[in-house]
Amino acid sequence: MKLLLIEDDAAMQATLQRSFERRGAQVVTCGDGRRALDRWQASQPDVVLLDLSLPGLDGLQVLAQARAAGLATPVLILTARGTVGDRILGLNTGADDYLPKPFDLDELEARVQALVRRQGGAAAAAESAREFCGLRCDPDSGAVYLHGQAMDLPPRELALLRALLARPGQAVAKERLFDLVFPGQADVQIEAIEVVAYRLRKRLAGSQAVLVTLRGLGYLLKST
């Protein structure tokens, strides 16, 4: 098992690295939010342990950018921010689990193992349903193909399509999509996602996939 530990506290980083390496895991570390996404893409971990209070770039921004880039690695947030609102925000941004500090190392290991097992089942399901209406997202490059031909899409439309393809036939919340399409852009209004959805809907015209707006819920892809 390979872990990516994104944590700026040197003592915490050393403790967790030593603990997981004793259990046979390979641990890659990063202490800077600005370098986290590059390290994530390069290391291809099985699980990411992510602190929220990072120098350079906040952990939630790192997570949002990773999801927008098509990185589906399970993420367990480790943070001193323990309020319910913080947990909800982290999960809505794309985290898979949340463990407030201080925590027990045995519980952390158990949660990591649970994420690995879950990812194994999800990978098998994704393999059997990786194509939807002729659309397929390459997990390595993040490119989307329609009937084998790469789609030439602007970055925001591509990010939106990738997010919807991850859950075809299921509604994805407007707020979640906004965070993936406009990561860390606090000056952009949430209504901007509607413009991106409108443009993507036009590009899908003629295919077997339809982008549907569910008022009050979000968006989904369905077959014609």
Rank of each mutant, 00 (worst) to 15 (best):
D51R: 13
T73R: 07
R39D: 06
A80W: 02
Q41K: 08
R81V: 00
D46Y: 06
S53T: 04
R87N: 03
T83V: 00
D58L: 00
G85V: 00
A95W: 15
G90L: 08
N92A: 04
L91D: 14
N92T: 15
A66P: 11
A95Y: 13
L78I: 15
G90S: 14
R39S: 14
T83R: 03
I77H: 13
L54F: 06
R87Y: 02
G59N: 10
L89C: 00
D58V: 01
V48P: 04
I88L: 07
R67F: 11
G70H: 10
R67T: 12
L50S: 11
Q65R: 07
A66W: 06
L49E: 15
D46A: 06
I77E: 09
I88M: 13
R87W: 01
D86T: 03
D46F: 15
L50R: 15
D38R: 11
Q44S: 13
A95R: 08
L50Y: 10
A64G: 14
R39F: 13
V75L: 13
G85K: 03
V62I: 02
L50G: 14
W40M: 07
T79A: 09
L78C: 06
W40R: 08
L54V: 10
A69C: 09
G85T: 01
A68E: 12
L52G: 15
D86C: 00
D51A: 07
A72P: 10
D46V: 14
A95T: 05
T93A: 14
A80Q: 09
R81N: 11
R81C: 02
G90H: 03
S43W: 13
Q61Y: 00
R39A: 08
I77K: 02
D51E: 07
Q61A: 08
A80P: 13
L54M: 05
G85M: 00
L63C: 09
L52D: 04
A66T: 02
Q41S: 05
L50N: 12
S43Y: 08
T83F: 01
A80E: 01
Q44E: 13
Q61I: 09
L78F: 08
V75H: 14
P45Q: 07
V75A: 08
R87V: 05
L78H: 10
Q41F: 00
A42L: 13
G82A: 05
A72H: 11
S53F: 03
A95G: 09
T79K: 06
V84N: 00
A64C: 12
L78W: 06
D51M: 09
L57F: 02
L49W: 04
L91P: 10
D51S: 12
G70W: 10
L76C: 11
S53N: 15
Q44T: 07
Q65A: 03
V47W: 11
I77F: 13
L57I: 04
L60K: 08
A80V: 12
T93P: 01
Q65N: 05
Q65M: 05
A64I: 02
L76T: 08
G56A: 02
Q65K: 03
Q41W: 06
L50Q: 04
Q61M: 02
D38M: 08
R81P: 00
S43T: 14
Q44L: 11
P55K: 03
A64S: 04
L49A: 10
R39T: 08
G56N: 04
L76E: 12
T79Q: 02
A72C: 09
G56P: 02
A80C: 05
N92I: 01
D38I: 09
T83D: 02
A80G: 11
S53I: 12
